[in-house]
Each structure stands twice: as structure tokens, then as C-alpha cells.
Nucleic acid binder design. Sequence first.
DNA 1: CTAGGGTTAG
Length: 464
Amino acid sequence: MAFKGLGVLPDVVTYNALVDANCRFVGIDAAYAVVRRMQVAGIKPNVITYNSLLAGASRDFRLSLSLDIFEEMLELGISPDLWSFNTLMHCFFRLGKPDEAYRVFRDIILNDLRPDKTSFNTLLNGLCRNGYTDNALMLYRNLKRHGCELELITYNILIDGLCKAGRLKAARWILKELGDSCYIPNAITYTTVLKCCFRCRQFEEGLEVFWEMKSKGYTFDAFAYCTVAGAFAKKGRLKEANDCMEVMLDSGITPDIVSYNTLMNIYCKEGKFEAASELLNKMENEGFECDHYTHTILVDGLCKAGNLEGAQRHLQIKSSTVFSTNLAAYNSLLDGMYKAGHAKHAMKLFKLMKIKDEFTYSSMVHNLCKERKFRTASRLLLSCLKNGMNILKSAERAVIRGVRDSGFRKDARKLQTKIRMAKILRNLISTLDSGNLTWMQLIDFGMLQCKGFQNPPFLIKKNY
DNA sequence: CTAGGGTTAG
């Protein structure tokens, strides 16, 4: 090895740096190769080595690999520390497995490790992202009540989670509490609130926040610029969206994949497909991999421009590779087909689609109503609700109004009752699924840990 | 070595 020439031999710290760098910049497999090499060199990996691997697998959404790494760690006699558990918990939450994540949290306690601020921040974020905003709020309140020190990041997590769940009032409340705390909102807080305003169609308020952020001298990064440009683009204010991105590029920020996607979206909406294609080349030259946003933006843009063949061709190329499950792109194509007058083809595609979501159904229902096919529309609407999904309120209204106005007042009333029943059933099922009871236990138990009590093993045995 | 913000489809 090169080190030998210097008379210095690499030790575990050297290798750990190498493993972590490989995880971040090359890939988990390359990192694993380093681990094999260090074992050959007679150096034993330690908990830090494995934590790096775990984080790498988690970043790549490779759940089974994370579990393998964890198991391998145990087999080697390396006992996982709090960081290992935090990473694993985060991994499960990201994969939409809150119950597994909860089990990890329990393991932290069972292993006599005290959850730290990161554990609770990860927990709060994971709860929000998996539809447990109420529990997240409860946890936050309890943490506060017990005098736990909160961090700015805790507020940011909650504000974002509540906004994304559409709970604007609660988000505002937390924002107010942040104002009363010892923290000053940072750029992340501002971007979060900005995004929230745009989501709730409070466009002017969003721009006000934007100016306030500027006047307070916060440095704008790609996150802030793309949020604002994306909002402008959605509103159809393409000139302003373009200007925003120009300012960003002029300020010397190197565009990343999201910035390029934002630009691509603007070009497609402007109908500038040549510029879009040039941008695509530029991205590829700079070594960027197009992600499913890029492809969706292109497919949707082509559909809206009336180029259904182009969109279909693009999808076919991509579906042979990694994008066979790009639901958003298929939804775009479905809607585009219908709007272009190919109702039969659209229906065929709809039936072929194995995965559907509320976008799929809402778009179909809207288009069917325009065609005055209210029977089919109401059938689809009900099956959407029965599958546990939401449907756009406007789609629901269109069907009911359509049935009623075509002279079937009784049927319209019947449909309304059916919709109500389907919704009640859906909510019941989701309450059962959420298993609120375990979460309550978890939260009460978390309090004891955070308050500064020693681990009470008797309590663990009693409760679990 | 772990946690937070940005881009797509009705």
C-alpha cells in the first residue's frame, strides 16, 4: 500500500474515513469493498465503520441491506450504539414502516441507551411523514412540558410536517411558539414557511415571506430559489419564474438536479422544447442522472403541448429502464390522452395501470364528467374511496352535480349517502391501521427517558 | 458516523 512508503500504516480511523467517503460519494458497494480490504489487512471494523455503512444504505433506500449490515454487526460482536439505532429508525421511517421504526425506538430503551435529541427529532419527523401528526404534536407538547431542551430543528420539523399535512393552524401556532422561544428562525424555517404559503395558495403571503427573508439578509440557496420559481411556474407566471432562476444562476449557485428540474419545468410550460432538450444534454454532460421528476416534467410537457406520441415514446424508453413505476408520468399521459380526445385509449390505459392514486382517479372522474358519462364517473369515484384513497373535492362535486342536473335527483342523493359511508369506512380502517395505542405508550415512555430519569427496567417489563 | 427546507401529474 502507498502508506507503507511513508512509514505509516493505515489504522481503523483511516479506513473509517475511507468507508464513509465511499458511502457518500461512490456507493455502498465500494464502501463494502473497503471494509473487506481492511479485514484482509487485519484491522477490525468498529461501530463507526458500521454506522457509516448503515447511513449509506439508508440514504440509498436499501432496507434489506441495512438490516443485513445490522445483523452482520451483531455477528461480529460489535454492539450497536445510539447512532446505529437512530440511523436504523430513520431508515424505517423513510421506507414508510412506522411500526418497525417504533420497534427500533423500543430497542434503544431495552439496550439501556438513553434516546437523545436526535432520537426525538428523528421520531418527530418520522411520525409526521407517516401520518401521525397528532402523535408528533403530543410528543412535542410532552417534551416541552417536561422541560426538555428543544432545538431549532425540532420546530422546523414540526412546522414542515404540519404544513404538509395541511394543518396550517397548528403550523402557525408552532411558528408563534418558535417566536417566543430563544431561537431565531433560520433559512430553513423561512423556506419551509414559504413552501407552506404556496401550498395553501397564499401566494402573496409567500412573496412577503420571500422579501422578509431577503431584507433580513439571509443568504438564498438553491432551496429558496427553486421554491419561489416553482410556485411562479405553477401559477403560470413563467416570466417571473425564469427571472428567479436567472438571479440564482447569476449569484453563482451551482445548479443541482432539482434546480435543473425546476428550469426544465419552466421551459416545458413555455413550450420551449428545444431549450429543454439542450438542457437535457447539458445535464447529461455534467454527469447528472435524470430522476423521475425530470421525466415526469417532460412527459407532462409533451402531453400538454399535444405531442402524445413524443410523450409515449419517452415513457416507453424509460419504462424499459428504471422508471417503470413512474405513476406521475402515467397520470399525465392518461390525462393527456383523454383531453386529446382518445377516451377509449385512456380507458384502456387506466385499466392496465396496476397502481393508481388519487390523481389517477380525480383526473378520470373529471374527464368522464366532461363527457357526461356520470354513471362510469360515480362508479370510479366510489371505488377510489373504497380503496382507501382521497379524491379531489371538485371531482366529487362534478359527479354529484352532473347526476342531479341530468334529472336523477334521487340517484344524486343516493350517491351522496354512498360517498359518506365509504368515507366513514375508510377513516375507520385507517384508525385501526394506525395502532394509536402503541404510539401513546411510546410517547409516555419517551417522556420518562427524556426528563432525566434513570432507565427504569421494571417499567419496561411491565409495559412491553 | 445519525435528524430538518426546494422540483412532477388533477
